[in-house]
Every structure is written in structure tokens, then in C-alpha cells.
Nucleic acid binder design. Sequence first.
DNA 1: TTAATTTATCGTAATATTGCAATCTAACAA
DNA 2: TTGTTAGATTGCAATATTACGATAAATTAA
Lengths: 108, 108
Amino acid sequence: MGLTKSFNFDDKQNQLAAYAKALAHPARIAIIQQIITHKTCIVGSLTDVLPLSQSTISQHLKELKNSGIIKGEIEGPSICYCIHNENWKIAREMLDNLFVQIDQRCGQ
Amino acid sequence: MGLTKSFNFDDKQNQLAAYAKALAHPARIAIIQQIITHKTCIVGSLTDVLPLSQSTISQHLKELKNSGIIKGEIEGPSICYCIHNENWKIAREMLDNLFVQIDQRCGQ
DNA sequence: TTAATTTATCGTAATATTGCAATCTAACAA
DNA sequence: TTGTTAGATTGCAATATTACGATAAATTAA
């Protein structure tokens, strides 16, 4: 199948899984790290830094954008990608919540 | 292709992506939540709680186990799954690290 | 032993993901 | 206008994931 039965799960479970999925590829981690280190978010340099083709990188950027983790704005001839702070905060809270609950109930 | 070029990325990027991938399905989030709420970790009840077949659930458990997030021990006739605390801590630290860096450099 | 219970694995089918080359589009420069 | 540059999109191929039923394996109960 390959088709996730997402309707069987509640919104939070689906949302958290979606954020995790966005992070579930080393190239997307690398992209986020690039955004971090460059502070400002011009990302034309990604094609120089990542060992992937331009079209593949563009696809990964699209997935990060669709998940809500990053956002892109046209900036002259190029595009400026940066972290979507509001959504990122939500993702962090959801993950933190899981970690805290586990610490409380399952921590040794 | 569908084949991640993981050799192109460093160990930490691959490891973090692997942890994220383990969390990248609502059923696996739900399984972890069940482990949390049941405190102790008998998970035979998963087939009653999740809207998925026993074999599918077993597959998701296997993925969580392979990622290192949970571990399973034989306990009489059934199997006791619980959080793998050491690995979970590593996953949390890696994720926290990313979040903190973003807060520091990209936070508004 | 036989039967029941619990979980894993196998086989299969459908959909998703990853990746690249090629092409398209939009904006700027000459 | 024409050319250039930056990215996105399309089309394709290969692999991965998700899901289920059926079956296998291991343990306990009778």
C-alpha cells in the first residue's frame, strides 16, 4: 500500500508525525543546519554544499516548506528561505511534550 | 530511486534523520504514547487500541526497535516493550541541539 | 501430547519517496 | 529585445514504505 491510514489517528498524532517526517532525511537536516549557520537565509549556496542535484534540493525544500518548518520569500533574483518560527515553536513543543512525558513516566 | 544517499552526509545528520524517521508515522507516535500511558510496557493491548492489523503493528514495533527508540523483552507468553532510555536521551539531545541553535540564531 | 495464545515473518499489492536530467518560468542585465 | 541567472516543475526509474492475510514460531495451559 504505502498509504498511511492517517484518518485513524488524531490531529496531534498526525501533526507530530508530519513534522518528524520533514526531518526524516539527512539532506533536510543539512538544509536546516545551513539555514542556521548562515543566519540569514539565502540558500543559493545549497547546491554548492550538498551532494545532490539542484532539482533534488528543490524538492527537499518544498517538503520542508509544505511541513511548515521553513518559509521562502522572493528576494530579488534569488529566494530567501528561513525558519518558520511560529511553526517551529509548535513542533518543538509537541516533541518536548513527548520527551517530558517519557522522562516522567519511563525515566529510570 | 527512493534510495537515500546517506553516505553523502555525516553520521550525526544520518542518525538524527533516522530518529526522526522512526517518529514519522502516526501509528508509531500512538505506540509510544501507549507505552507512556501504560507506564510499564506490556503492549499486547496495542491491537485493541490501534486501528491496524496485528502484523502491521508488529512491523511498526520492529522499526521503532531498529531505530533504537524502544526495546523489547520476552515476558512470559507476551513481550514487554519499553523506551530505550539511553538512546531516547541521545535522540532528545540531538533534537534539542537543533532547536536551541535555531532559537539562538533564527529566533525573532 | 495437544490446544491456545502471542508475536514475528513472509508474500503480495499499492502508494510514497528519492534522485536526476531536462525543461519551464520569472526576474534582472545588457 | 536577447541573454543570463535562480529556482521550480515535469517525467521518469528505482527503491522504500505501508498494509493486510496467511503462516510460522515460541510459550503456556490443559
